[in-house]
Write a protein that binds this DNA or RNA. Structure first.
Lengths: 221, 221
DNA sequence: CGGAACATGGGTGTCGGCACGGATGGACAG
DNA sequence: CTGTCCATCCGTGCCGACACCCATGTTCCG
């Protein structure tokens, strides 16, 4: 319902892989209501272009040199609050999802989704509607959306301090008994914390917890 | 100068990110002499499709579930030596480059290159010419080519191909039964390979194998 | 005050990881 | 030809991971 209904949405596309950028550009330019008017190969370039050009929507990859897509999103939503931001990433990771929302992004799209979904996410972002990425981490996103509907704020950390302590030790390969001995609690309590972590993060076993811990930098590979 | 001069090259495109796949497909299909006739979302699907369909060229991403692009390349160059293989990846990594050549790939293309370069790499592969990706590690590639000219072999790894296959699948969180079904072997054989891996690498359980697989780049965190 | 969130502890049961023992056949080198 | 390496397969048994149920005490907030 903006004044832009007739003019196509002007998009900035930021991804450090030129080939991916070129492909996504073709996908978006094929839509009559969307047009890519700028490309950036890193986060700094994305911020510079979005400041200097007439852009409606920025589509940002997370893993980029100089500045990540999330850092760029924070900067841009400060500088130009009216700019819509879409985070496009390969990481189906609830931590990144929260970071993206806190950074001012109006959508979070996985690279594993189909072309159609990206197009729809762009349109939803322009209409200022949240977009639920099909296939994205459902458990925590549900939790978030439920809270959002009730006007409740985001929890700063989905994972509590105690849980993070257990998470690190589990990811390092320690058994429940070892962890219990170390923290001077019952092994059953360790298992309870671990189960809560699995449920919170929507994961199935220790292996996924380990990869998660590596992703968030809690342990080294 | 083949009999195919008039018919377009039939391409299998394998990448676990549907969005990237869709974009690259648009890039390739825009060329009159190239046509994407099949898409795969993982390495196992890629092998199955390339076996059953009439394919001239397989474009394989390295990081895929179930089987990496390199593992799929090894399998395919055994099964169908006349098939041309192009490895498409974000990793500017000399180790992967060597592995790709040993696996029978005729080209190695970085995702950071422009659309034109991928198209040219496809054409070069079909003409059976090696394609040196602009921007790829040049020094070590020189070293390799020098060695190859002198007929010297590349050093073998301690971990066998089969073991690496099992390693990747174990690290991805699959059970022995799942892996056995996928590779069409007994779950007990999977457990034997896993036990050999644990013994060879001096590790205790799946978690350590997972971290190892991440360190060597076999899977993503 | 009453409820929510957190940390604590328990019981029971299934299933898979892993160790240990064994075997066979094929490929390749010395 | 013989030995070594690899891939294949089997049985037995222990133990830990994980799911599902349950309860208690504290803290903090509306």
């Amino acid at each position: 319902m903006t004044a832009r209904d007739s003019a196509p949405t002007r998009i900035l596309l930021a991804d450090d892989h030129a080939l991916v950028r070129g492909g996504v550009r073709l996908i978006l330019d094929a839509e009559p209501d969307l047009t890519v008017v700028a490309e950036a190969a890193d986060g700094a370039e994305a911020v510079a272009l979005a400041r200097s050009m007439d852009i409606d929507l920025a589509v940002l990859d997370i893993s980029m040199p100089l500045r990540t897509g999330l850092q760029a999103a924070r900067e841009l939503s400060r500088l130009r609050p009216e700019l819509r931001i879409l985070i496009l990433t390969m990481y189906d990771n609830e931590q990144y999802f929260f970071e993206a929302l806190k950074a001012g992004a109006s959508g979070y799209v996985l690279k594993s989704v189909a072309d159609r979904d990206l197009v729809e996410a762009c349109r939803a972002a322009v209409r200022d509607e949240p977009f639920i990425c099909p296939g994205a981490e459902t458990a925590l996103i549900r939790t978030y959306l439920d809270r959002a509907e009730q006007g409740k704020p985001l929890p700063d950390r989905a994972v509590t301090e105690r849980e993070e302590e257990i998470l690190k030790l589990v990811a390092e390969g320690h058994s429940s008994k070892e962890i219990g001995d170390l923290l001077v609690i019952s092994p059953k309590t360790v298992e309870r914390h671990r189960a809560n972590l699995l449920q919170k993060l929507g994961m199935r076993d220790r292996l996924e917890l380990t990869r998660y811990a590596i992703r968030v930098g809690l342990i080294e590979p």
